[in-house]
Every structure is written in C-alpha cells, then in structure tokens.
Design a binder for these strands. Structure first.
Length: 113
DNA sequence: GAGGTGACTGCGA
DNA sequence: CTCGCAGCCACCT
C-alpha cells in the first residue's frame, strides 16, 4: 500500500518474526522486493524505536548473524540480552546456530499463503 | 529540487 | 584467512 512507507513495510515484517527466531536484512529486503537495497532495511530499523507498537529489532541481524546494530540499542548490550531472553544464544555478538534459527519471510510467509 | 546518509551485501585482492 | 571497494535506494535536511 502506497500509504505505508518502506519503513512501515519493514516494521510489519519484523513484527512477524516469531520469538526465538532471527532474520537478516537481505531476507527482509528481498521479501519487500528491494533485495538490492538491503541498506534500506537497516536504515528503516533506525526508526523502529519510534515505531508503535515496538519492533523486535533485536531479531534482525546481518547476513552473518552478527548483531551489527546492537550499538543502536540503549544500552547496546540490550540487544543480546533480549535475544537470550527469547532463547536465542548470542556469542561474541553473533547468533549461535544462526542458520537453524534463521527465519525467512519470503519462505515462511509464503507458506502461510 | 539536490545532496548526503547508512543496523547491508557480494566480490576482488 | 582478512581487508577494502562499489552498488543499492528510501528517507532526512
């Protein structure tokens, strides 16, 4: 819907991420049809804190499962804390077993349809 | 209207 | 293996 900005679309997808799961910027970007601009997804997350309801941005990590945006949290360790609170183990700022916890909207959401 | 920014990604050296 | 460069495009000033 043209009404919803690109940011809003990102927020919608991120909010669909089940607890204990994580996804990557590229996966969201690809689902939105802008896989070429994965940066936009991350940029959109920059406003996720102002989004309402709150967006579980901690479930969004980069392609390597690295908590690249943890420094955008306050405090930065909050991101890892939230993930561990959901059952996602984080080690060295990286999601453990990331490949298994990976949640691809292009697949998961498509199956629901 | 134009310019700058960036929570990324993929490829090359 | 690690490091660097370029492309990508919506949002902000």
């Amino acid at each position: 819907m043209d009404r919803a900005s690109f940011f809003d679309q990102v927020y919608q997808v991120v909010r669909l991420i089940p607890a204990g799961r994580v996804t990557s910027f590229g996966a969201i970007a690809a689902y939105l049809g802008t896989k070429g601009s994965s940066r936009m997804v991350g940029y959109a997350m920059n406003g996720s804190f102002a989004a309402d309801p709150h967006v579980p941005a901690q479930r969004v990590v980069n392609r390597n499962g690295l908590l690249t945006g943890k420094f955008h949290f306050h405090p930065p360790e909050l991101m890892q804390q939230l993930l561990e609170s959901e059952g996602v183990k984080v080690e060295d700022d990286k999601v453990v077993n990331f490949k298994s916890l990976f949640w691809d909207p292009a697949i998961e959401l498509d199956l629901e349809r």
